[in-house]
Amino acid sequence: MAQELMGQYLDLILEANKTTNLTRITSRDEALVLHIEDSLVGLEEVSEAPDGLYGDLGSGGGFPGVPLALATGRETVLVDSVKKKMAIVQQAVNQLGLGRQITTCSDRIEDLALDRPGSFSVLTARALSRLVALLELSSPLLVKGGRLVCYKAQLSDEEMREARAVEDLLGMRLVSQRETTLSDGETRRTIVVFEKVGKAKLKLPRRIGAAQKTPLKPRS
């Protein structure tokens, strides 16, 4: 049933994509790999997070959020500041009768953290930003013990070092890192998981855009 709904959702998004830019992928076969299969790469890590609310940051066309919501049954919030995208995604979700389980939010992540601090048990972020920024944006949203599951196409040692240098400052801790290749034989994914272990040692969220424009550095 969940797999069938994923396919139906994908078809609705590909149809809407003909008039609104939701994804660069237009082929259904390619989308099955790069949207559905790719979304489910992190299913194991999302399932290991504590029970509770799931949020997909920078959700775009609803990936990986919708497939993961269907696979886990979690109450889900898809977060993306592009209102037009979120309106189309919500329409597709409602059309499939999933509106009670899956809702959309077109606030900026920093504003969501002010409205719903400590509300999420698990967050995902696929190709959204550098790890150091994702840790900062996620920390105020997560409950203690909550998990951030990051999908990365390429993860450099430098990017990981940046994140590890500020994890303590943000009350976060690296839990796991896993690499895999999709069934096309060429698309590589690294799944990196951080856990919220305590309160951040600075006031969060900072102003909108600060996490990306002026990334945190360790305090000397």
Rank of each mutant, 00 (worst) to 15 (best):
L137E: 01
L134A: 02
V166Q: 02
G198H: 12
F194E: 06
G145S: 03
E110L: 08
C150L: 05
R189P: 02
G118H: 14
K199H: 14
G146I: 11
P117R: 01
S106C: 06
G198F: 14
S183V: 09
Q90S: 07
L148E: 00
R207N: 04
E167K: 03
I88A: 04
L134W: 15
R164E: 14
L137P: 08
A125C: 00
I109H: 07
E110I: 10
F120Q: 04
I191P: 05
V122W: 12
K199Y: 13
R100G: 11
A125E: 10
D184W: 06
Q95H: 15
L135I: 11
R147C: 07
D111H: 10
R100V: 11
G97W: 13
M172E: 05
L148R: 08
G198V: 13
P140L: 06
A133V: 11
R178D: 09
L202T: 13
C105L: 06
V93K: 07
A165W: 13
L128C: 10
V132I: 14
A165P: 01
A113K: 14
F120A: 02
L148G: 03
M160E: 12
E158D: 05
T187N: 02
T180V: 12
L204Q: 11
A127F: 15
K201L: 05
M86R: 05
V93F: 10
C150F: 12
V82C: 00
M86L: 14
R206A: 01
V143N: 05
T124D: 07
D107Q: 13
L96M: 03
L123K: 13
F120V: 06
T180H: 09
E186V: 14
V93N: 01
V197D: 03
R116V: 12
R116I: 09
D111V: 10
K84C: 08
K84I: 06
V166S: 00
D168T: 12
R100Q: 14
V149L: 00
R130C: 06
R161Y: 14
K84N: 03
E162K: 07
V132P: 05
M172S: 07
A133D: 10
R126P: 05
P140N: 05
R188Q: 04
K85V: 03
T190Q: 09
R108A: 04
V143C: 05
A127R: 11
L182Y: 11
